[in-house]
Design a protein around this nucleic acid. Sequence first.
DNA 1: GTAACTGCAAAATATTTGCATCCTT
DNA 2: AAGGATGCAAATATTTTGCAGTTAC
Lengths: 139, 139
Amino acid sequence: MENEAINDLLKRNQLSVTDSRKKILDLFLKNSGALAHSDIEKKAGERFDRVTVYRTLQTFVEKGIIHTIPTADNAVLYALCKDECSSGHHYDNHVHFVCDNCNVTYCLDEVVTPEVKLPKAFKPKVIEVVVSGLCENCN
Amino acid sequence: MENEAINDLLKRNQLSVTDSRKKILDLFLKNSGALAHSDIEKKAGERFDRVTVYRTLQTFVEKGIIHTIPTADNAVLYALCKDECSSGHHYDNHVHFVCDNCNVTYCLDEVVTPEVKLPKAFKPKVIEVVVSGLCENCN
DNA sequence: GTAACTGCAAAATATTTGCATCCTT
DNA sequence: AAGGATGCAAATATTTTGCAGTTAC
């Protein structure tokens, strides 16, 4: 479907276009929420090799195609980056939302990270905000 | 040193006062920053059994004595809770700061989590904020 | 004395690495 | 054809579980 878009995205990042990469990217595009490593292993109709998933995710993070989301329970989640994320320099300027009920994690791209006033000696660079509660579907 | 305080804290939470618990709590009190599981295994003059550390940390989290801090690189960090945290109901109303240079994580208890405006369908419950940059010492 | 806690062994998971093979360019 | 990507095997690392011995109350 968005085959062209996927190919483009990979080529733009100097990555060769391979099956697993296309399929994993497709998973992210079809899922509004964030995915855990295990989601990817499971959700793929055909299963990928664990190692391939590890390596693919790592490559995507390095290229700034996806980013990790820190969660309170320290599960490792990944989500697609917006276009502004350049290679290796992901600045997370949006809010993440984890639903306590359905457990889906959303990137609320339209909600901009608020200002935080720190003690003067601290120099902030990146601000991560993760909100949990009930999402639009479970509310 | 703050031996009495430590004993009190444990007793107040219906935990028996044991050596490992006292020593691990002491580590937290002596360290302004947050600690990872591995820090605790290492920093203790005498090493604890891995398993004991796991179980002790878990117990402390359940009792609301410490809380976990989500970090961008998904390392698992723990820090002391302020007194308001009641058993099993930790509400993280302060900001965490991770220094990119010295790598210490601070609980900025005096910096209150800002308001975040979400799409109306989302009902927020807990807001976690993690800021990274340069801390007061590395600045 | 009893219940709770610890520490060892071992099981279950998760992650990383090496290398031969296959695929993309 | 050459370099990169994959997949298998195996090495490491992390976390959990069971149980017998020890300690706190």
